[in-house]
């Protein structure tokens, strides 16, 4: 009773998340969360070295907390991917516990993810090039930086504020933007991203 004329392809909505999108975004988020956990402790050393040089320079160390969203978005390429991955990484960090408390960790994750998300949104989720990745990293940093200034460096003066914002944006652009982009390229080359556009672009038939 099933007479079909052609391949029954459901029209796949470019913006709809497939199950594999959700699960892989989650995996990336959780893996990033582990890096957050390591960095929650690891940044203390470099930070005490950098601060005396110029207060605010510790913003250069923010990158490792910002890459999750950019990485997730570059792989998944769906609306909300940056927020979702960054937030999930923050959930891991919050569940294990850190010096910022659960709610503020989640809040920071959301804000940082949002910073990256807005950049991808501006490009209508169509452009996934290196410059856009760098912008997104910087966007995450700017959003996260402002958030930190309000909540954690409330007592800071103007010099600190400016130095901090500039250094965190540099860190975001390089670590969260450039490095994430390179990482996605390396991942795609292994074939692990074959289920995603980022992986299919580089795939060759054998």
């Amino acid at each position: 009773m099933s007479v079909s004329s052609s391949t029954p392809t459901t029209v796949t909505n470019r913006f709809r998340w497939r199950i594999v999108d959700i699960v892989v975004a989650s995996v990336i988020g959780v893996a990033s969360g582990l890096i957050f956990l390591a960095w929650n402790v690891g940044y203390v050393g470099p930070s005490t070295l950098l601060e005396p040089l110029l207060p605010g320079l510790q913003g250069l160390l923010d990158g490792p907390w910002l890459f999750a969203g950019v990485l997730g978005a570059l792989v998944i390429r769906k609306p909300g991917a940056a927020i979702y991955t960054e937030l999930l990484a923050a959930v891991v960090s919050a569940l294990v516990g850190n010096q910022w408390g659960g709610f503020l960790t989640l809040e920071a994750g959301f804000v940082q993810g949002l910073g990256a998300e807005i950049i991808f949104l501006i490009f209508a989720y169509r452009v996934w090039t290196l410059p856009v990745a760098i912008l997104a990293g910087a966007g995450a940093a700017l959003a996260g930086g402002i958030n930190n200034l309000i909540l954690w460096y409330a007592g800071a003066d103007v010099t600190f504020t400016i130095v901090y914002l500039i250094s965190t944006v540099i860190s975001g652009a390089v670590i969260a933007g450039l490095l994430s982009w390179l990482l996605v390229r390396a991942l795609a080359a292994t074939g692990a991203l074959d289920a995603f556009p980022a992986g299919r672009e580089v795939r060759q038939r054998v």
Binding site: I19, I22, V23, S26, V27, A192
Partner: peptide
């Protein structure tokens, strides 16, 4: 660390199939 990430993404991709096979979504 890189190999672990690759492995986990692969696991995730497989797990997604397993979840769909059980009616998820």
């Amino acid at each position: 660390a890189f190999a672990l990430l690759v492995l986990s993404i692969r696991r995730g991709t497989k797990l997604a199939v397993a979840m769909e096979a059980r009616g998820f979504g």
